[in-house]
């Protein structure tokens, strides 16, 4: 049975649609006759063409929230819209605003939200979602049993974005009810962290460092290697928690999901928390002094050795190739 209607959370920055949104649209098109987006922010008109090209018939937008946070306001608007005619499924990315909005919506509608999924399917009359657990070693299949709408969040890179050649999505206004005191939190300023080189979750090569580097100063060689390989530097949660590098570097369950052509893990043992964020990489190279490190069990090329010896030589060899 095909679904009748799916709503997809459309996220964008600087009028560019987030990749996760396009990925979800590809899946939604496969499952439902009608696919529509909902959105908050000033750029609905600017992204309507892209959303339409990926299969969205309409984009319902709250417009600029004037500093209000998306979670509470967009969820209130959605809950009101769903009251009239609920869709079968509401899809969110496992993003900051996606999780907030899904969470608030679940309370408003008193429906469960199932998070961190990597797939969704229709089986008979049921919508089922698939979530990896224990570092991606097992897959939990869960069905929704509380009636429409089913609310789910999906991990980035779960689906492949693909254009369907549709016309620009029609832009419709989504009314935002007053949330009272609950809506009082505001954004007063936005800070964009400058980064050179490709983005961590888009780079073809990712070089990540972990606790095995020994100390914060030693992380520099990870940056240097990433630069030499025209890739992005990443990190395990251990060294992010320790304050060596910013949170934006983190690869894993918390943090970014990456699927580069090659992932180089240096001094990372391979906690389940980390593995779930990188085991989808096409090729994995791991360097670790402990032959029992779990990361070596999933590496295509595993080096049992000292990162302080291997990495400098690797960097020198790369640089000498120009």
């Amino acid at each position: 049975m095909a679904l009748s209607t799916i709503w997809v959370h459309a996220e964008a920055s600087d009028a560019k649609v987030a990749t996760i949104t396009l990925e979800m649209l590809a899946k939604a098109r496969e499952l439902a006759d009608t696919v529509e987006c909902f959105h908050s922010g000033p750029d609905a008109e600017a992204i309507a063409a892209t959303l339409g090209a990926h299969g969205a018939g309409k984009v319902h937008t709250t417009g600029d929230l004037g500093g209000g946070l998306a979670g509470v306001h967009l969820a209130s608007a959605l809950a009101q819209a769903a009251g009239a005619a609920p869709p079968d499924l509401v899809m969110f990315g496992t993003t900051y605003d996606g999780r907030d909005t899904a969470a608030r919506l679940s309370v408003k509608l008193d429906k469960p939200v199932i998070t961190n999924n990597t797939d969704v399917a229709v089986e008979g009359d049921d919508i089922v979602v698939f979530e990896p657990i224990f570092g991606g070693t097992q897959i939990v299949k869960t069905k929704f049993a509380a009636g429409a709408p089913a609310i789910a969040t999906f991990r980035p890179k779960s689906f492949v974005a693909e254009e369907s050649g549709g016309a620009a999505a029609e832009v419709a206004e989504l009314a935002v009810p007053d949330s009272g005191a609950a809506g009082a939190a505001r954004v007063t300023d936005r800070h964009v962290e400058e980064s050179s080189g490709p983005k961590l979750d888009e780079a073809a090569v990712v070089v990540s460092g972990g606790r095995g580097l020994g100390e914060a100063e030693k992380y520099q060689i990870i940056e240097d290697l990433a630069k030499a390989l025209k890739g992005a530097p990443g990190a395990s949660r251990a060294i992010v928690d320790a304050g060596w590098v910013p949170y934006s570097y983190q690869v894993g369950q918390t943090g970014k999901v990456v699927k580069p052509t090659v992932y180089i893990a240096a001094g990372i043992s391979g906690a389940t928390q980390h593995m779930v964020g990188m085991k989808g990489s096409k090729n994995i190279v791991a360097i670790n002094k402990d032959p029992e490190a779990p990361i070596l069990s999933i590496a295509d090329l595993g080096i049992v050795g000292d990162v302080h010896k291997v990495l400098p030589k690797l960097l020198e060899a790369l640089q000498s190739r120009g």
Binding site: K141, T142, A299, V304
Partner: peptide
Amino acid sequence: AGQQIVEVTPAPERQAGEIIEDDG
């Protein structure tokens, strides 16, 4: 909970490739 786990299955495993000891 309004949700029901249908089944839990092992994910396809990633095979280990070549593992070598660093000889310099």
